[in-house]
Structures are given as C-alpha cells and as structure tokens.
C-alpha cells in the first residue's frame, strides 16, 4: 500500500485545521507498520482515509484494485444482538447457526482457536471482558480475509497486562496470517514491541522512519539496541511540544 501526498482539512468551529499536509507512507505487504504520534496528530484520520471511511482532500491511497481492508477500531464495536460467532462472521454474510442448525465453518473454528475465543462462540458481547471483545473484533476483521489490517489504537483502552498479552497474540496472529498491518498508536513501547517499521507522524507528515526489521520477535524492550532507538524517538517527539488539536 502506497500513500502519496495525502491532505485532509477539518473545520472545527470557525477554525480550519490542516491535519495531514501531503503525507507519504509505504505500508509493507507483510510486515507491521506502526504510525506513532501524540494525541490529536492525525493518526486516526490517516487510518480512516486508508479504510475509505473518509475522503481525502488531495492525494491517494494506492493498493491492489481489489484489495480488502479489515478495520479494527479503538472500541470493539461488536453488534450487541449477535453472538460472538455471528459477530466474527459479520463481514462475510454467513451465519453461525444454533444447536443442530449449526453450520460447519472451518475458518470460523480456526479463527476462534487463533484468537482464544473457543467456547465463547455462543456468548453475547456484553458477557465478555474488554480484552475478549477486542479479540472478537480482530477475528471479525480476519474472517473478512483482508489484504491489510488497519488498527486504530486497538489496545489503548485495555489495562497494562491485557494490553501486553494482546500485543503478543497479535504477533502470533501476524506470524500465522502474514497480512500487512497498519497500526496506529501513541505508545512508544507498543510501537517498539510490534513494529517492523515505526513512523513518527508529526505536523501532518511522516517526520521520521525507523526500520526495526532486523530485530526479531519477541523483543526485549530493555535491550541496549531498542533502548537507543527509544531514546531517539522520545527526543524526536519532544521537539515539538505542541498539543494536538484533533478530537
């Protein structure tokens, strides 16, 4: 996926805010590309443009003509009236069925296994914890068989331990599925844990790129090498002390 010269403006009250000013970014077909930035820097806008949920003012998001996107939002956004199984199949147009009407669906079984939701396929979202709901949202995106996964701070609302466990599981799933992932976050540690490439988004463009392709998973964030990169990222991000404007 190639993003070229992407521009987007918003009107907030009487003020025009240029969120993205000609942003360029290449998203790896198989690796995890992390976009890192402070709150309100336009990370979510970038993701929404890539997902086609909003229209860019200028510029383009280029990918294969029939490339499919699986979007994972900050909140799970599961349909409260559907069971976990039916929620996972939501984008496919299939149904899980109940009792003896259950349809054998290998892909669903595989996804339930992969996301650790086996045994919960008949539960309703409100019966699940936040972490489990987010797993179901991940499985829903995967069931759609997308070419890319677009993830908008999907673990931001989770507590520390759940979050780090979800990161591990995401790496596992990524290993199994080999999809290109565009992952947006404000957490430097998260970026360093999962990113093959980390891009700092600042002032409407990609300010700096870090290639972490040569550091294998799982990573030790306390290692000297990662510590050095982290220091660089922190210094880079502290240069502009401005607080982001966007909601």
């Amino acid at each position: 996926m190639r993003i070229r010269d992407l521009c987007k403006e918003y009107q907030v009250a009487a003020k025009r805010i240029e969120v993205l000013k000609g942003l360029n970014l290449d998203v790896d077909n198989h690796g995890i590309t992390v976009v890192l930035g402070r709150s309100g820097c336009g990370k979510t806008t970038l993701l929404r443009l890539a997902a086609g949920l909003e229209q860019a003012d200028r510029g383009s998001v280029e990918m294969g003509s029939d490339a499919k996107m699986g979007v994972i939002f900050q909140e799970p956004r599961l349909m409260p009236w559907l069971t976990v199984g039916d929620n996972i199949l939501f984008g496919t147009g299939k149904r899980q069925g109940r009792g003896r009407h259950r349809v054998l669906n290998r892909h669903l079984d595989y996804l339930l296994d992969l996301t650790g939701l086996k045994g919960f396929e008949d539960a309703y979202p409100s019966q699940l914890s936040g972490g489990m709901q987010q797993r179901a949202a991940l499985a829903r995106a995967l069931a759609y068989k997308p070419d890319y996964l677009l993830m908008d701070e999907p673990f931001a609302a989770l507590d520390y331990f759940t979050r780090s466990q979800m990161q591990k599981e995401l790496l596992k799933i990524h290993q199994a599925e080999q999809k290109g992932i565009l992952f947006v976050t404000h957490s430097i540690d998260e970026a360093l844990t999962i990113g093959k490439k980390v891009v700092i988004l600042e002032d409407g463009g990609c300010r700096k790129e870090y290639d972490l392709g040569d550091i294998p998973y799982p990573r030790d964030l306390l290692s000297e090498k990662i510590g050095k990169i982290k220091k660089g990222i922190v210094e880079e991000m502290e240069k502009t002390g401005e607080i982001g404007m966007l909601p």
Binding site: E75, P76, P80, S126, L158, D159
Partner: peptide, 16 residues
C-alpha cells in the same frame, strides 16, 4: 439479550 448495554464499547471497556 440484544438490548444488553455497552457491547458497542462506549462504557464497557477495559475490564477483564
């Protein structure tokens, strides 16, 4: 249980 609250994720985030 369709009307059960929160599953769309407004209030019901972050408990495990």
């Amino acid at each position: 249980r369709g009307s059960a609250e929160g599953a769309s994720g407004h209030e019901n985030q972050g408990f495990v």
